[in-house]
């Protein structure tokens, strides 16, 4: 499932703390129509660059890239050190 929210936090024992809660579902709502609109252009570029061999890479890169984003849901990183704490959580 595509990640819908992201929590990012950097907590320092000395200095400023940084917390971010990002509603990714709103970002997808903006980006997905843009990608759909740009996809014919990408296809055209891929066709133009096909003889050089780069067209194939461009064409295959996007599905794999979207799959990578799609699979990020559930990623959790939590690091606690002497100097502070870092966490990243994608739900």
């Amino acid at each position: 499932m595509i990640p819908l929210t992201m929590r990012l936090g950097i907590k320092k024992k000395t200095g400023k703390n940084f917390y971010l809660w990002l509603p990714l579902f709103l970002i997808w709502l903006i980006f997905i129509p843009i990608f759909i609109l740009l996809s014919p252009l990408v296809l055209l570029i891929a066709l133009i660059l096909w003889p050089t061999g780069k067209g194939k890479i461009i064409l295959y890169f996007f599905p794999v890239f979207f799959r990578l984003i799609w699979c990020m849901s559930g990623l959790n990183v939590d690091i606690q050190t002497k100097s502070g704490t870092f966490y990243l959580n994608l739900l």
């Binding site: 794999v64 990578l68 699979c71 990020m72 559930g74 990623l75 990183v77 939590d78 690091i79 606690q80």
Partner: peptide, 18 residues
């Protein structure tokens, strides 16, 4: 220091393909 990382196996698959 403490580290706690949870990576979806699907992400590893997709990452290797990328």
């Amino acid at each position: 220091d403490r580290v706690n990382v949870r990576v979806p196996l699907k992400l590893i698959r997709a990452g290797l393909k990328l």
